[in-house]
Write a protein that binds this DNA or RNA. Structure first.
Lengths: 348, 348
DNA sequence: CTGAAAGCGCTTACAG
DNA sequence: CTGAAAGCGCTTACAG
């Protein structure tokens, strides 16, 4: 059983096109043409070269190709939200999982970094681009007149904005109809008979939050519903205080819509602490479905927009942008999953 | 208001050291020495060169440096679990957020990709390494005799194994004492008086799952507890069926420990569906604390091991490995958060 | 302390 | 169809 330890195969330097050229008896230019499928070498030579390349286990040098301006086979994503939010909010995990799943199929990687603010985010993207480390960038949580999109567009860099509305130059948007989604939610509440509805929002600088607020207000106006929006910045404690504030009114809302699952959970906690029963005293809707919504007591009515698919679609859009294709996308499917947390309001 | 549109500043090619050399009246070699803080240029020349470099807004070319074998300022992580699991299991989001937070402070990026299996994971890592796209790699869910660790070690590539136990060559382990954690959980249950305990495990190929199982069995033997492990592979439906199987016994367990929060939620769902009350009929513990555990009804007793810190520590370990430092780490703090889902068993 | 040159691995005109 | 050469932006011996 004591076979002589086979000498570790010396970690020889990786093969280069020069090695292949030598072995195949051609010049390195010929090798380059052959492996890149370009015309200029006879079929026989090409075949031979490819054969040798395989033997030598050759892989193009990423660094050298990058120096020549080749692609990076990677797309960049900078998350400009606090780590706690990213760790808690299920949206990010699902979105990233979706992006990854789609990117991986094509051998692309995701370059991920976190930043304090948008300025830092821009710096990171610019660095990656200057270094040729990414072929394209994903932008999340777009603002109105978003500086990130402007600077990325200025660099003529392939960019996919999730939830944006611009398709121009190198920028493409994955449209998300927040207005329609909000109307779906409100329709559900309206049908149950709610006439006093509150919306605890995320960050009002975000375009999607604004779109939801606009649709919320419009719906309330159209139907003669008393509507009230309160910003809670995706922060659980702000969600609790917003909830407390809402319920302290002499005419509290009979239904509350929360802009994220984390804020929903926090809000529910506050309602319970305050002695309100859900849905008897207040109905609750979460903007984001999650395992949590299904297992809470009561189970929570939620807007399901499938963040994994959203991630997949963003990645697909990016891949198409990079391939210079343009494909029609079906919009992200959005539904309201009615559960126990919503019911008709009590007669007052 | 009609200022003549200022001609878009021509996106001039980025400055190179040759440009700097020209402007500063030196050779490019001098520039290289100066910007890299190497000796060989006078302080005066160095100052002038640095000044010009700043004026020209110079940044070293990442591609060129990579060609010369410089670092990539990035660490790689491949997730070899199904996208659904990664999207649902809060551990990954927290862990990645922690890694990112720590890496970002030093300007490092995370190269992230998903893979079908370990073979694919190895291929991805090898590719990144060969391309010099990562300076180090993170390995999650180590197995006994893990092929990934072997191949990474064989490449002499800086590797941090989360939950591993090897510190050798280029491989460093972030130790996680699963045995102690399990004993903590079991102690809690034992104190409550449980004598029939089940453990619904994740993937038994994972070292951490095995370590938990071993500690579980040992504890049961030591205390004369009837213990039963059942594999459910982090799959919610398997968790449900395992739960059903367990409860169908003529002598069902009085407490069940689930190896993840998703499996806990699924198991609770099954128990409820089967008509069992928690904790009256069965106590439940989740191996992984999450917002969900806090808001479920009943709230769930959980093992809190702070995945965000774990991520931070893994990144810190990596950074130290890359800096050739070796720092003593305090082990990850682990506690059992007792909530409503555990209570003394009913007298039978 | 400074300059000229070679080289990292590839691609791309440009001649033959 | 094939070969020789220059160049991408940097670093590193090697001479002066």
């Amino acid at each position: 059983m004591s076979e002589p330890a086979r000498p570790e195969p010396r970690r020889r330097k990786r093969a280069t096109i020069a090695d292949i050229a030598e072995r195949a008896g051609v010049t390195s230019s010929a090798v380059s043409l052959a492996v890149n499928g370009k015309r200029g070498v006879s079929d026989a030579t090409r075949a031979r070269i490819l054969e040798v390349a395989r033997e030598l286990n050759w892989r193009p040098s990423h660094a050298a190709q990058a120096l020549m301006g080749k692609g990076a086979e990677a797309v960049g994503l900078v998350l400009a939200r606090p780590p706690e939010v990213i760790g808690e909010e299920i949206f990010f995990a699902k979105f990233i999982a979706g992006v990854q799943a789609s990117l991986s199929e094509r051998g692309y990687s995701l370059l991920l970094q976190m930043a304090q603010d948008m300025t830092a985010e821009i710096t990171i993207h610019a660095g990656w681009i200057a270094d040729g480390r990414v072929d394209g960038s994903l932008v999340l949580d777009p603002r109105i007149d978003d500086p990130r999109i402007k600077s990325l567009a200025g660099l003529d860099h392939p960019t996919v904005v999730v939830g944006g509305d611009i398709d121009q130059g190198s920028v493409r948007s994955l449209r998300v109809d927040n207005g329609a989604a909000m109307r779906l939610v409100m329709e559900h509440l309206d049908e149950l008979g709610h006439a006093r509805i509150a919306f605890v929002t995320g960050d009002q600088n975000f375009r999607h939050t604004q779109e939801r607020m606009d649709a919320f207000s419009q719906f309330c106006i159209d139907r003669g519903i008393w509507g009230q929006s309160l910003a809670a910045n995706f922060d659980p404690s702000m969600s609790r205080s917003a909830t407390a504030r809402l319920m302290s009114s002499p005419h509290p809302p009979t239904a509350i819509v929360y802009d994220s699952d984390v804020m929903t959970v926090a809000g529910l906690g506050e309602l319970t602490a305050l002695g309100y029963a859900v849905p008897r005293d207040v109905s609750v809707v979460s903007w984001e479905d999650s395992a949590t919504c299904q297992v809470l007591h009561p189970t929570v009515t939620a807007l399901n927009r499938d963040a994994v698919s959203l991630g997949r679609m963003a990645a697909a859009e990016m891949l198409e942008l990079l391939d210079h294709q343009s494909v029609e996308h079906s919009p992200v499917e959005v539904t309201v999953v009615a559960r126990e947390s919503t019911a008709a309001p009590a007669r007052s």
